[in-house]
Design a protein around this nucleic acid. Structure first.
Lengths: 196, 196
DNA sequence: GTCTATAACGAGATAGAC
DNA sequence: GTCTATCTCGTTATAGAC
């Protein structure tokens, strides 16, 4: 039944390539042709799996959010202290940066004005999910005494996410992780007692 | 000698419109046609003033940097304490956000991989200028005692800029300044003794 | 300094064969 | 599930008239 050797996971191969292109070039900086060329298939094959760019984009964000949620669960089951879990959270972002990428949803936040409604909603959902998780982490740290959180947990969570997204963004023109590391070092020093 | 009523400042009118479009939609999210339509001129007229999109973009960044430098000088001549000057610096970003815009160079940092070299250099120059100014401000605050700066001034300056750019970025999908305000409130509380 | 007209290309998208 | 072929549109850009 199979004519081309790839099978049912062509869709995820497409998502992999498109994801990287969006993270590097932005949603308006890549095309179906770019993805097709890289996979050795035609644009028409792409339209079979994803009817349009907006639908592809929406699936991209939802998959990214699911993978991010998995990473957060892995952190929940990992480091014992809230301080260590916060450091692990920062490390997730750092790994993305080292691959030469921006956070997918950070990039799409920049492109936000040009996105169709379903994609917008998915981007908002990603940030809400992250805010809630980080806020819970900070609450936990306040309780077990491993973190110093002086403001409402949700406000503090937004600060953490904004700092990480901003650090990734500003690190891009400098083409080094040094800027990112300086920001994260300060961020952790602010929340972790004795880390200054 | 003048056939159309506008005169020599058509160029700056073009820059005004293009600047806003880039700040809202990104460099790959606007076209010569968009700018021409809004000004009631043709694309050909645009090409007369700016041979290509890359040249327009470069002029855009340089003008933005000059205006930003003016704003920084105004702050230097304004508030007496370093703490107040830091707050004034944050307020510059806040005003941009309230206009529904992203920082021009923050947006271009996202688009960075797709930019031609001259534009990239201009974007890097903008961030270097800002880092240096903020670092000087923080040094001054450490000296006069109005700011608490525990890390190297340049690292701390990068934290400030990353937090502001990140706060603007993340505020976009939420379509409110509340996220931005939460971040800036925390930022100031970190540097200004007694502000927590 | 701005226009009309058009070139040259790439984008997203579709029809229909295999 | 992927192809070829094609469509339509928007993009950047240029030539030459006014």
């Amino acid at each position: 039944m199979v004519t081309q050797e790839r099978g049912a996971d062509t869709a995820s191969a497409i998502l992999d390539v498109a994801e990287r292109l969006v993270q590097q070039r932005g949603f308006n900086g890549f095309s179906y042709a770019d993805v097709a060329r890289e996979l050795g298939i035609t644009k028409a094959a792409l339209h079979y799996h994803f009817p349009g760019k907006a639908e592809l984009g929406e699936r991209l964000v939802r998959r990214y959010g699911e993978r991010f949620a998995e990473a957060l669960r892995a952190i929940d089951d990992g480091p014992a202290t809230a301080a260590d879990r916060l450091a692990a959270y920062c490390e997730v972002y750092r790994r993305v940066l080292l691959e030469g990428r921006m956070c997918l949803c950070g990039m799409l936040a920049a492109d936000y004005d040009t996105l169709a409604e379903p994609m917008r909603a998915a981007v908002v959902g990603f940030f809400e999910q992250n805010e809630a998780w980080v806020a819970g982490l900070l609450e936990g740290g306040r309780t077990d005494g491993s973190l110093v959180v002086t403001t409402p947990a949700l406000d503090a969570a937004r600060t953490v996410i904004a700092a990480l997204e901003g650090a990734m963004l500003v690190a891009r023109p400098f083409e080094t992780a040094a800027v990112f590391d300086a920001v994260v070092g300060r961020l952790l020093a602010d929340f972790v007692p004795g880390a200054a």
